[in-house]
Simulated scan of single mutants.
Amino acid sequence: MGELRVPLVRSPAEQAEDEAFLRLYGEWAPLTPGEMAAEMAGFDRPWWVVGGWAVEAATGFRREHEDLDVSILACDVPALVEHLRGRWHVWNNAGGVLRPLGERWTDVEDPASQLWLRASAADPWVVDVPLTPDRDGRWTHKFLPGEDARVEDVTWLADDGIRYLAPEIVLSYKARLGRAKDDPDLEACLPVLTSAKRVWLWRAVEQTAPGHPWLDRLQQP
């Protein structure tokens, strides 16, 4: 019997968008963080889980996941492609335009784009890798100019050895999208956010998504 998880809540518009996405790009059969960790064994550059799985790791809130998002520094793309060679095809998604990375295209042109992984054209996608633009090897926030830090200072290491993005930073990315399905993640994170992290998140949302309903929620007890 499968483990029980809270269903992912989608608005009708979000459901329609998801269905259109699958018709255009194909099916997904995402790996779990543990399965991804096995694939990344021996990769000597930093990588970390973001998105909903990072919320679950920080809070224990077990909900349905439609994908697995992990990130690396954009400067490490060639190293990742080499690490996965022979096992996974790595595609760069830049604004909806896909191209395979390898001998012809060895790196990405947009350090804020994404990588998608699959075994072959006949197989589903398994991992989404939203890249993190780096500044001299330091993490930067895509949407908050001037925010940079060591990777170790914006992530945390779980007991299983997997690194996750800090929950307040995960939420700062989610807020821009204005999706109903992200509201439960905010509620799950609030009890684990310190006052300082709540203030940081409020300021981040205020800058990147002015007028967002989360701004009022973050000021409530």
Results as ranks from 00 to 15, higher is better:
M1L: 08
G2S: 11
R5S: 02
S11N: 04
D18C: 00
E19F: 00
R23I: 08
Y25P: 01
G26V: 10
A29P: 01
T32C: 03
P33G: 03
M36R: 05
A37F: 06
E39W: 02
F43E: 05
F43V: 11
W47K: 10
G51D: 15
W53S: 06
W53N: 07
A54E: 06
V55Q: 00
E66H: 11
D69C: 08
D69V: 02
L80R: 11
L84I: 15
G86Y: 10
W88K: 04
N92F: 06
N92M: 10
N92T: 15
G96T: 02
V97Q: 08
R99W: 15
P100N: 07
L101H: 11
W105F: 12
W105R: 03
A112S: 15
A119Y: 00
A121E: 14
W125Y: 14
V126Y: 05
P133S: 08
D134R: 14
R135P: 09
R138T: 12
H141F: 04
K142V: 00
F143G: 13
G146E: 08
E147M: 12
D148I: 00
A158W: 14
L165P: 04
R179L: 13
R179V: 10
A180E: 12
P184A: 10
D185V: 13
L186E: 06
V192W: 07
T194S: 15
K197M: 08
V205N: 03
E206A: 15
P210M: 13
W214P: 09
D216Q: 13
